[in-house]
């Protein structure tokens, strides 16, 4: 924190920044006979994908797609996956498409980043499930694998595009009580999910267990609880609390995006929606600017929104 907070509808916006990291992202388009089955596959694919630290990948549903927006003219869902590098992302794509989309009734799976020059082989690896009964078709310069399955055929694109992306954009909602914090976070998630090019990888888009780097007492831990923002620890002498008077519950929104403008749009909309009764302060998580090269200044975001 450096300057004075600004007020938005009575909520203090701290003069600080969210610190985010360079990542690699892929976009997967899942289509199916119905919206419901496409969503089922997408939810299964994006399960247990909240943090690269614990899950090796971060993922979420970007948008539901109309038949006219998909390669095969069926309803679909767009999923974004984020990893540290292209090779790691390739492995996660093969695992997750193979276990959660290939197995799901009526689905097919397509690359959602056709312009990306960096490409990783996904269908080309999954084809081996076909035990040499598989066949491929090249349509419009792209190879698709037809893998025979008991239901009929699973169609998956040979290669998926991977592009540079940003993970870990965030803000913190500091509220008078748990109900107010949750209502504000839910309002923020609702508007942020309308922004294309971003996903909110945590459950329901909300994190209640923000973390700090490492741990004070367990030296092997990569991350541990963010004690400075835990209300139950404010009275401890071994904690330097960041919570102002009256704050009794904090929730965090984490956002991963394909590019900076998408994350900025999502943060701007989310912070604005979170400024509601019962919320005392909006802040953001950072590491002093020393770890992530992408910084999102809250005041700058809101100034651009007002301009």
């Amino acid at each position: 924190m450096s300057g004075e907070p600004v007020l938005r509808r009575g909520v203090a916006i701290v003069d600080t920044f969210a610190e985010a990291f360079g990542m690699r992202a892929a976009r997967v388009l899942i289509t199916a006979r119905s919206n419901a089955w496409a969503r089922t596959a997408a939810q299964s694919m994006t399960g247990f994908a909240t943090s690269v630290i614990g899950c090796k990948v971060e993922a979420g549903i970007e948008a539901e797609l109309l038949p006219k927006e998909t390669p095969d003219g069926r309803p679909g869902v767009s999923v974004l996956l984020f990893g540290f590098d292209a090779d790691g992302l390739r492995g996660r794509l093969v695992d997750r498409v193979g276990q959660t989309v290939l197995t799901c009734p009526t689905t097919a799976c397509f690359d959602g980043l056709p312009e990306a020059t960096e490409r990783v082989i996904v269908g080309g690896a999954l084809r081996h499930f076909g035990d040499k009964y598989q066949a491929s078709k090249v349509v419009d310069g792209q190879r698709y694998w037809r893998i025979p399955v008991m239901e009929g055929e699973f169609l998956v694109q040979e290669a998926f595009g991977v592009q540079r992306a940003i993970g870990g954009g965030n803000f913190l909602i500091l509220a008078a009580d748990q109900d107010a914090a949750l209502a504000a976070a839910e309002a923020a998630v609702e508007v942020m999910r309308k922004v294309r090019g971003v996903v909110l990888p945590f459950p329901g888009g909300i994190v209640r267990a923000g973390s700090k780097v490492g741990a004070k007492r367990y030296k092997t831990m990569i991350a541990s609880t963010n004690d400075a923002y835990c209300p139950t620890l404010r009275g401890r002498t071994d904690v330097t609390s960041e919570l102002p008077e009256g704050v009794n519950s904090v929730l965090e929104i984490v956002v991963d995006g394909l590019d900076r403008p998408a994350i900025e749009s999502a943060l701007r909309a989310g912070i604005d929606a979170a400024c509601r009764p019962g919320v005392i302060q909006i802040s953001a998580g950072n590491y002093g600017g020393k770890l992530g090269k992408h910084h999102f200044q809250l005041h700058t975001l809101l100034a651009e929104a007002s301009a």
């Binding site: 390669p71 095969d72 003219g73 069926r74 097919a108 078709k137 349509v139 419009d140 698709y144 037809r146 009929g152 055929e153 169609l155």
Partner: peptide, 13 residues
């Protein structure tokens, strides 16, 4: 008897 999905891609092309 089936509805091969790849035909949809070819028809669109």
């Amino acid at each position: 008897v089936c509805r091969p999905l790849f035909l949809q891609l070819i028809f669109r092309q």
